[in-house]
Each structure stands twice: as structure tokens, then as C-alpha cells.
């Protein structure tokens, strides 16, 4: 599958200016719960064609994490019209991530 990674250079174009809602997973490679959640985020990416799904590595993108007030990961945010509409913290079951999209 295509890489879901976004960074500070394409975040505006891919996420903030997206016409469809965007689910963004803020994560880090050293974070166990993030790695538990990763495959679920990827599953959602494959299943839902009505939204876009991206991942932000917070180590490489500390400014983006700070800008969106990320203080605990995994942090999954649903962006609508350039703003965070809903968010979830922690390795939650898939049903809770899907609930962000309702």
C-alpha cells in the first residue's frame, strides 16, 4: 500500500486543504501503543474511500505535534476544513476510531 506519511512540508496541502475529512495518526516508532494502533489505522485507510488517512511521525515533526497540542500518543485527530473536529488518545479499539468518523 502507499505510504501514509505526511510531514510539515505537505501537511497543509494534504490535510488542511483537503476537501474530504482526514484522519491523522500522530505516532512514534518507540511508542508501543502507537505500533498496536498502526495496523488498525491502515485498515481504515484501505476500507474507507470517503476519507483520507495519514500518519505523522512526531519525532521528525515536533512542530506539527506541538501545533496541534499533542501531549500523549497515539493521538488520532479527524481534520475537517483545516480544523481538528474530533480526536482520540491512546491505543483504542477500532470501533472508537470509526466513531470519530460518524
Amino acid at each position: 500500500m502507499a505510504s501514509l506519511a505526511v510531514n510539515k512540508d505537505n501537511f497543509e496541502a494534504e490535510v488542511l486543504k483537503s476537501e474530504v475529512p482526514v484522519l491523522v495518526d500522530f505516532w512514534a516508532s518507540w511508542c508501543g501503543p502507537c505500533r498496536m494502533l498502526g495496523p488498525i489505522v491502515e485498515e481504515i485507510s484501505e476500507e474507507r474511500s470517503d476519507i483520507k488517512v495519514f500518519k505523522v511521525d512526531v519525532d521528525a515533526n515536533q512542530d506539527l505535534a506541538a501545533k496541534y497540542g499533542v501531549m500523549s500518543i497515539p493521538f488520532v485527530a479527524l481534520f475537517k476544513g483545516g480544523e481538528v473536529a474530533k480526536s482520540s488518545v491512546g491505543a483504542v479499539p477500532k470501533s472508537e476510531l470509526l466513531a470519530l468518523l460518524d
Partner: peptide, 17 residues
């Protein structure tokens, strides 16, 4: 404020501080 400054895991969240 859980996840917005209140944390229960220093090794997980420390880097944000």
C-alpha cells in the same frame, strides 16, 4: 485534561514536555 497535560505514563508522553 487527560491527554492535554495530565499523563499516566512518563516514558510515553515525556518527550512532549
Amino acid at each position: 485534561f487527560s491527554g492535554k497535560g495530565v499523563s499516566y505514563c512518563a516514558t510515553c508522553d515525556g518527550m512532549f514536555f
